[in-house]
Design a protein around this nucleic acid. Structure first.
Lengths: 415, 415
DNA sequence: GGGGTTAGGAAAGGGGGTTTACGAAGTCTC
DNA sequence: GAGACTTCGTAAACCCCCTTTCCTAACCCC
C-alpha cells in the first residue's frame, strides 16, 4: 500500500536482472532499450549486480563503427539458489545456478503416514544437504532457499497457517527448518511459486497483467497485476480452484458443490473420464499421473474417448478461464503445472475454442492463452526465485559497508 | 507498469485530499497520523491544496498545552465538479462542490428511439448547462466534468468503443461533447465510477484491496487493488456480470448461459420472482424499479414470497461473491448501485450467510461485506471524482507558472 | 594518425520524502 | 506578569531515485 522510491529501485533491479537472465549475454544498451530506463540508471544497476558478482563482464560486441559494447552475462558460478517443492507425496529439491539452470536434484518420497512437521522437515533438510553435496558448491555460495508448501502460508513469519494435506494448523515451518538449514529461507505456496516463475522466466515476463492457471492435483490461479504478484490482504489470493462453476454440481472436498477443481484438476479429469467410460483402459484408479499420461497418449492416437474427455475438460476450463479473462482483462493467460504440460497442445487448442465461446469479445481480443514455456518443475523454479528476490532486496543495505570499507571485501561473508 | 516518483506524489496528494474531505475540518497532525506521511510532507501537500484554493484554513484547535493546531477544511466555494451518468433511459447530471455535496441536479429522459450519439450529446449538454445555471456558479469555477457511459470505453481517447444499449461502435463521445462543453472532460464506465466513488468516499476508503459489486440493471465488479483501480490491459477489467455461475443455466443476452447477471441483476431478480410465483402481485413486468421496490416492501412486511426471492437471489449472489473473495482476498466487498440500496439490510444479511457457506474460511475471515454507505447516486459521484482526480493530477505542471509569475495569479484562468 | 562514431562513466539537476533545527504561539507556574 | 514548558509548523539539510548533459574512452575509416 505504502509506496516509496526504494520500491522503484527494487522493481528496476528485478527487471534488469530478469532481462539479463533472459537474453544473456547482453549489453547495457540493449538493457536500456528493453527496460525503458535511461542508460545511466542501467549502468548503475549493472554495476551493483557486478559488485554482487551475480553477473560478469564477458567480452565485447561490435558497434556500428564506434566503441564496442561491453557484454554482461549471468555469473553462473556467482551463487546458487535452492528451490523446495513440498507436495503431498514427495519432496523435491533443486539447486540452481544464477542462470536458473538445474545443477542438482533430490527427491524424497513421503509415505501417507508421514504427516508430522518434523518428518517433513527431516526430508527437506536431507534433500537440501544432498543437492549441495551433489553440486559441490561451497555452502557460502548458496544465496537462499525458497520453500513451497501447499496451503495457506504467512510468508513473512514463515508459518504454514493451514495445510489441508496433513491437517497442519499454524506450523512454524521456517523456524523448524532454520534449525537444520543455515541459508536464508523464504516460503510461500506452489500457486504463487508458479506465478513468480512465469513472471520472471516464462510467458508472463514483461506483462503488466497476467493470470497463471495452475492445473495439477489442485487448481489455482496466480494473479500478476501491475507487474507484481497480487497476494491479497491475507496472502491467500488466487484460490480459484474453489470457484463455483456449476451451482449444485459435483461435491468438492472443500464442502461445496461445483468447484472448478472438481472438473479440471487431475482428480476432476478422472471423474470426467469415469463418467464417460467407467471401464476405459485409460483410467488408472489411484494413479493420477498414469491416467493423465494415458489420456495424452490416447489423444495422440486419436482415441475417441480420450478426445472427448479432453474436450469436456476444456469446456469446463474454458468457461472458468473466460471468467478470469472478463474479470481481469489480462494480457496473457498461462496454463501451468503438470496436467497442462502433459496434455499440452491438444488441451490448449480446445481451451482456446471454449474460452472464445464464453468470453466477451473485447477482453478476449486483448488476451493470449498459452502453455507455460518452462521446461522444468515450475514450483521448484518459482521457489528458487523467491530466494533470488530475497537476495536482491537486501542489496540496498550493503552499500554503506561497501563504501566505508572497500578493503574488507575479501573477508568471507557471514553465512 | 512504469512507476516514477511522481506517481508517489500524486497518490499522496489524493490520499491527503481524501482524508481532508472525509474528516473536514482536520489538522495537519491528524492527516500525518492518518496517512502515515511525515509532517513535513503533509504540510507541503496541504500548502499545495491551499494554493489551489481547494481547501482553506478555518481556525484553530486546542492542543494539550502548546501552540494550537491549525485546521483546514474543504473550500466548498473553491470549485465545482460535474458528474454525468448516461444510462439506457435517462441522463442524470449532478453538480458538486469540493466536499462532494450535490448543489444541483438535472435529469433528462431519453426515449427508446433516441440512440444516436448526437441526441445523447444534446441531452448531456443541456443538463450540464442546467446545473451550472441552477447552482449559479461562474463557469470558470467548474474544474471538470466526468462522464460515465455504460459499455467499453477508452478513457484516454474518450471513445466509447462499444455501448450495447445503443449499439454504438467507436463513437468519439468526448470529442462530440467538447463542442458543447468547455470544461475539461473525463470519461469511463459506471462500473469504475462506482468503484472510484467507494474508494474515495465510501466503504473502500483506506483499503488496499476491495471489490465493489454493482447490482443494478447490469452487474459488474469494480476492482480496487493496491489502493488503485485495476483497469486491465484494455480498460475492461471487472466484467463480472458475465461470469458463468451455472453452467448451461439461463440464457443471457451476451449469448452465453448461466451468467451471474441473469440471476442477480434487476432483470435476473425478476426472473427469480417469476419462476417462484408468476402471478405475484410484486411483479411489475416492464418496470424493474417498481418490482424491486415492491420486493423491498414485501420483505419489510414479511411476505413469504418476497423473502424467498431475496433468499434465492442472495444464494446466487453469495456464490458469486464467495468466488471473488477466494480469488482476490480483499479487505472489503461493497454492495453498490440501486438494487443493493433498495433491498438493503435484508439482502446483505442473506448474502453474508450465503458467502459464508461458499467461501474458504481463511479469506472469508479477512473480508468484510458491507452495503455502500454512499447516500446519493454513486455513478454521478464517481464520475465527478474522475474530474477531481484529473484536476489534482495537473497540479505539478503549474508550479513553474506560479513561481515565476505570482503577480499574474489574478488573471482569469483559461477555460 | 586525425576525424567521425559509439559506449560508458561522472557530474549536475529535478522530484520525492524524512529528519532536524528553529521560530511561533499557546499554557503553566512561580 | 515573566519565564519555563509544550506543541505546532516551516525551513533547511539530507538521502534516494531517475534523467540529462558533458566528457572521455575506444573503435572505425580514410
Amino acid at each position: 500500500m505504502k509506496r516509496t522510491s526504494r520500491d522503484i529501485r527494487t522493481a528496476n533491479r528485478y527487471e534488469v536482472l530478469r532481462q539479463i537472465i533472459a537474453t544473456s549475454p547482453t549489453s547495457r544498451q540493449e538493457l536500456a532499450a528493453a527496460t525503458g530506463l535511461s542508460l545511466a540508471t542501467v549502468a548503475t544497476l549493472v554495476g551493483e549486480l557486478l559488485d554482487l558478482r551475480m553477473i560478469t563482464e564477458v567480452g565485447f560486441e561490435d558497434s556500428a563503427g564506434g566503441r564496442p559494447r561491453g557484454l554482461v552475462a549471468v555469473n553462473t558460478s556467482g551463487g546458487a539458489l535452492i528451490g523446495v517443492d513440498i507436495a503431498e507425496t514427495y519432496v523435491r529439491v533443486e539447486l540452481f545456478d544464477l542462470a536458473l539452470n538445474v545443477l542438482a536434484r533430490a527427491d524424497e518420497d513421503m509415505r501417507p503416514g508421514e504427516s508430522r512437521p518434523e518428518q517433513v522437515v527431516g526430508h527437506v533438510a536431507a534433500a537440501v544437504g544432498s543437492v549441495v553435496a551433489q553440486a559441490g558448491v561451497e555452502g557460502a555460495r548458496v544465496l537462499g532457499v525458497g520453500v513451497s508448501v501447499p496451503g495457506q502460508v504467512d510468508r513473512d513469519s514463515g508459518v504454514a497457517e493451514y495445510a489441508p494435506n496433513w491437517d497442519w494448523h499454524d506450523v512454524p515451518l521456517l523456524d523448524l527448518l532454520s534449525e537444520h538449514i543455515a541459508y536464508p529461507l523464504y516460503m510461500d505456496n506452489p500457486l504463487r511459486a508458479c506465478a513468480v516463475a512465469e513472471l520472471w522466466f516464462g510467458a508472463a515476463r514483461g506483462s503488466g497483467d497476467a493470470v497463471v492457471v495452475n492445473l495439477g492435483t489442485g487448481v489455482g490461479a496466480g494473479l500478476v497485476l501491475g507487474g507484481g504478484l497480487h497476494r491479497g490482504v491475507s496472502n491467500s489470493a488466487g484460490e480459484w480452484g474453489h470457484t463455483t462453476l456449476v451451482l449444485d454440481g459435483r461435491l468438492c472436498h472443500c464442502g461445496n458443490h461445483g468447484c472448478v477443481e472438481t472438473y479440471v484438476g487431475a482428480p476432476g479429469i478422472m471423474v470426467n473420464l469415469r463418467e464417460l467410460a467407467a471401464d476405459s483402459a485409460l483410467l488408472h484408479p489411484e494413479d493420477q499421473t498414469a491416467t493423465i499420461d494415458a489420456l495424452a497418449r490416447g489423444v495422440a492416437a486419436h482415441d475417441p474417448v480420450a478426445l472427448k474427455v479432453v474436450r469436456d475438460t476444456a469446456r469446463y476450463l474454458g468457461a472458468g478461464i473466460a471468467d478470469l479473462v472478463n474479470l481481469f482483462n489480462p494480457e496473457v493467460v498461462v496454463l501451468s503445472s503438470w496436467v497442462a504440460a502433459t496434455l499440452g497442445e491438444p488441451l490448449l487448442h480446445e481451451v482456446r475454442e471454449a474460452v472464445a465461446r464464453h468470453a466477451l469479445r473485447r477482453p478476449l481480443a486483448a488476451t493470449q492463452i498459452v502453455l507455460s514455456p518452462i521446461p522444468t518443475d515450475p514450483v521448484c523454479l518459482g521457489a528458487a526465485t523467491f530466494a533470488l528476490e530475497g537476495a536482491l532486496q537486501a542489496v540496498g543495505l550493503r552499500t554503506v559497508a561497501k563504501r566505508t570499507t572497500p578493503a574488507r571485501s575479501r573477508t568471507a561473508p557471514p553465512s
